[in-house]
């Protein structure tokens, strides 16, 4: 009993430290006439003031959780899928492309097709990085960064060319996605897509089950822990690494489709909005323990949506990113410190 309590304390300690660091940071950066309370209140109001604000949190939560749970898979296989942002982008582009191609029709047919297309797009983009990795040993970090940038340029080219709105040549957005492909909110106030929520929850449950219960889940772990011994033990390391990236890409693709089919309703530059990178932070914060993804993604979504209120305190919304980065850095460092302080003692006892 006492041990469990101690363990829990040591697990929570880094997070607590992280929160303290963030609080100190806020105190340091706010202008003299605002207080820590004002900033916290801005975040709180931005997230929970009313049902509409809370919907905003969920709208961020959906893609962030999808990306996060996908990244748990690649992290388990020991892969740094920085290309997840580009996989989101390609997913969104595939969904939009299908939506434009199919035009009007029954949403019951079109929306599943678009989401399926998004999975395909994300998986396809991930497979480029996967191919370069397993065939030529090109680090997935660098190919991922490059593929992210290329995905952004493809987006811009599509907006400027085939998908441009009728009247303008220098548009910031594409023409709107046909109504049949749009995901709709429950109501004016609770503006969250049920499809998005259901898909996300199903995806989380499925991934957790597959990781815990299947041979593939075990193979991922083996490859992540030690690829050489995994290979010697008969684990198909190439296929495992390849498929991990593809599945993560497919999930990121769905996340991208949510940004287009629900959030924006059109295609615009950088529509993935850094959510892929944020997903990496989420997963780093929890050392890739999948069950925690929905919760930590929720925390980050609160910060994201709350961050939109910072402008009323004359604070740039990039503060949200600073706080999230500082939180993760502090937790990582505190984790390391905790392990360093504990390990020698365990060895003795």
């Amino acid at each position: 009993m006492k041990r469990t309590a101690t363990n829990l304390f040591f697990l929570a300690l880094p997070l607590l430290l992280g929160v303290i660091v963030v609080a100190i940071l806020i105190v340091l950066v706010v202008p003299p006439n605002t207080t820590l309370g004002d900033v916290l209140q801005a975040f709180w109001n931005g997230a929970f003031r009313n049902l509409r604000r809370f919907s905003g949190v969920l709208v961020f939560w959906i893609p962030l959780t999808l990306v996060g749970i996908g990244l748990v898979i690649t992290f388990r296989a020991g892969l740094w899928n920085i290309g997840v942002e580009g996989q989101m982008t390609l997913g969104g582009l595939f969904a939009a492309g299908l939506a434009f191609m199919l035009g009007e029709g029954s949403p019951l047919v079109i929306i599943p097709l678009c989401i399926f297309g998004a999975m395909l797009g994300g998986a396809l983009w991930a497979s480029v990085a996967a191919f370069l990795k397993v065939r030529f040993g090109v680090s997935e970090i660098f190919s991922g960064v490059a593929l992210n940038a290329i995905a952004n340029q493809i987006t811009l080219q599509l907006i400027a060319g085939p998908w441009k709105p009728g009247d303008s040549d220098k548009a910031q957005y594409s023409r709107p996605v046909p109504d049949a492909a749009r995901l709709l909110g429950v109501s004016q106030d609770f503006n969250v897509s049920v499809v998005g929520l259901v898909v996300t929850i199903v995806a989380v449950v499925l991934v957790l089950l597959v990781l815990a219960r299947t041979r593939w889940g075990l193979n991922l772990k083996a490859v992540g822990k030690n690829p050489r011994s995994a290979l010697l033990l008969g684990v198909p390391t190439t296929i495992t690494a390849f498929s991990a990236l593809m599945v993560c890409g497919a999930l990121a693709g769905i996340a991208g489709s949510q940004r287009i089919l629900f959030t924006y309703g059109d295609v615009r530059g950088q529509f993935a909005g850094g959510i892929g990178f944020l997903g990496l932070l989420v997963v780093l914060l929890i050392s890739a323990r999948g069950v925690w993804v929905p919760l930590i993604a929720f925390l980050f979504a609160i910060m994201l949506n709350g961050g939109t209120q910072l402008q009323f305190l004359n604070l740039d919304s990039s503060l949200t990113g600073v706080l999230q980065g500082a939180l993760v850095l502090a937790v990582l460092l505190a984790n390391g410190l905790r392990d360093r302080l504990r390990k020698p003692k365990q060895a003795k006892g």
């Binding site: 990039s318 990113g321 600073v322 980065g325 460092l333 390391g336 360093r340």
Partner: peptide, 29 residues
């Protein structure tokens, strides 16, 4: 982080790259 705390250099470096980019925007206003 890597020498004393034995953390993954890639993880710490990646978090720092995001953090530093956001800091440059926030304090650069």
């Amino acid at each position: 982080a890597s020498i004393e705390l034995r953390l993954d250099q890639v993880a710490v470096g990646f978090v720092l790259t995001l953090l530093a980019a956001d800091m440059s925007q926030f304090w650069g206003v």
